[in-house]
Structures are given as C-alpha cells and as structure tokens.
Design a protein around this nucleic acid. Structure first.
Lengths: 132, 132
DNA sequence: TTATTACCTATTGACATAGTAGGTAAATAT
DNA sequence: ATATTTACCTACTATGTCAATAGGTAATAA
C-alpha cells in the first residue's frame, strides 16, 4: 500500500507543476492549499530535494520549484524515491536477500509478473498526465 | 506490499491443492515442507477455516483439506481474506472514511485505475493456475 | 488410554507510520 | 543594520502492524 509519504509527495509535485510561473513556491502555501501539515511536508520535501527532483531557496521570496518540465517526471520515480521501494513482495525489493526457494517457488512468477505491471504503470505515467 | 500472512496463506492453499488425495493434511507436514513455523501457520490457517476456504478435522488422521476444487479458488479471495484489504491506497479500502477531497483529487483516478488492474489480476488468477 | 491433531488466548520484540517540537542558517526587503 | 521570511536540521513520540512465540485445551482415532 502506498503510504501518505508517497501520496503527499505526489501532491506537492503536482502543486508545484500547476503553479510553475518562475517564482519559488513557499511550503506554507502548498501545505495550506493541500490541507497537509507543513511540518510533516518538510520531511517529505527534504527527500525530494535530496533526490534532485526539486530545488529549494531560502529567505524572503524563497520556496521550492521543479528542476525539470512536468512532462519529464514519472510518477514512478517520485513514488520510488519517497516510498523506498514499490515492490509488491519483500523478495522482489532491490535490497532483498536472495531466496533459496526462488527456483522452485510456485508463486514467484505471479508476483514478478504483477510487480512488472505495476512498475510499468507508474513509470509510464508522467506528472503532467495528472495535471488537469 | 503483500505480507507474509497472505503469501504463506497462498502457499498453504497450494500445498493442499497438490496433496489433495482425499486424506486430511496435518499442519505439521505443511509447515515442514514449506519451511514455515507451524505456530505461525496456525494463526493463518485459522483465518482460512473461519473464512470458509478450508476445513480442519481434529484427532489422529486429522488435518486440513480444501472445500472446493483448486480451479474454484481465486488468488484474490485468498489474499483478501488474509491481508484484510488489497487496496493500493488507504482511501480505496472498503472500510475507508469518505474523503472530502475526492471530487477534485487529481491523483484518485490514477490510484483507482491501477487498483482495479491489480484487483482484476488477482481475481482472474485461479489457485490451479499456480500448480505446476 | 494414549497419541495425535486442531484450536484457543495471550504475549512479545522489532519496526514503520504519521506525525510534532523546537531550533539554526540563509536570503531578502526595509 | 535589522527584521522578516523562508528553507533546513535534529530529535522525539504515540500508535499500530508485523511476524512470530508460549503454553495451553478440546476433539478424534488407534
């Protein structure tokens, strides 16, 4: 299940995409518009900055702005950065310990197939696809 | 992410499907074959019985057996029973509180679409499809 | 009557989730 | 210079879930 972290991150990115008029957008405004605690958003936004998806500028007139055009972000990269992993089952996570039952596992092919479908879905979906 | 509960439940069901020779299968044997703690499986199997997917019989010669043919179980019902909900995001869970942002939510249609795809995938997949 | 099996309640350690609290540093406007 | 605004930083916490474990009782068959 996608947690609030990933969902809020996506909403922040969308908010920035819709208000990308060159000026930096203060987090306070985003928090008010989205109805999310600014304090909690600080944590999320920090990860987005660290991951290179957005950039922040301090001081009066400061705030956050996208680094690229909204068409150049995939939903997948936003979610994966904030959620850590989108893997459907533990054994398919990138940092998973190798499972010795894998060769004879009867369920693994199913998990892998659906996991691939989900991955494709999120990485084909652009941030700009969500802006109405 | 699908937890061990749902994944183990599926493996128990598969184990029962493969050894369905009329006799009841003791949990001890399933646990040994699958390499899963019998104590933990007790919890999972209890839910499968309560949910009407399998039936248990006590005493010597007792154990568990499927209630129907393996072709008549969907992976979806097994997972949903043990996982509680397969919803991708909290607001799509069956017991979710109604979200007042839903009408103008820009991300909801995406969550709903993928959620539907996952739901379809799991409910079209039969237990018998996993038996090799 | 003994062995075997399901079934039951309770407990636990570790971890993740969803935040809150209270600051410091940087940039700008006055 | 100074006040204001903003990002950025570390730490803390309550709650819940996960993945089991522990120690029994009830039912059934040889």
């Amino acid at each position: 299940m996608i947690s609030t972290k990933g969902r809020y991150a996506l909403r922040v990115m969308l908010d920035l995409a819709e208000h990308a008029d060159g000026r930096a957008m203060p987090l306070k405004e985003i928090a008010e518009r989205q109805g999310i605690s600014k304090k909690y958003l600080e944590i999320i936004v920090k990860e987005l900055v660290k991951g290179g998806l957005i950039q922040g500028s301090s001081g009066k007139g400061g705030g956050y702005r996208l680094c690229r055009d909204a068409t150049d972000y995939t939903v997948g990269e936003i979610l994966e950065l904030t959620e850590g992993s989108l893997a459907l089952v533990a054994c398919l996570a990138t940092d998973a310990a190798p499972c010795e039952r894998a060769p004879q596992c009867q369920t693994l092919p199913m998990w892998a197939e659906l996991d691939g479908m989900i991955h494709d879905y999120f990485y084909k979906k652009k941030l700009s696809d969500l802006v109405k």
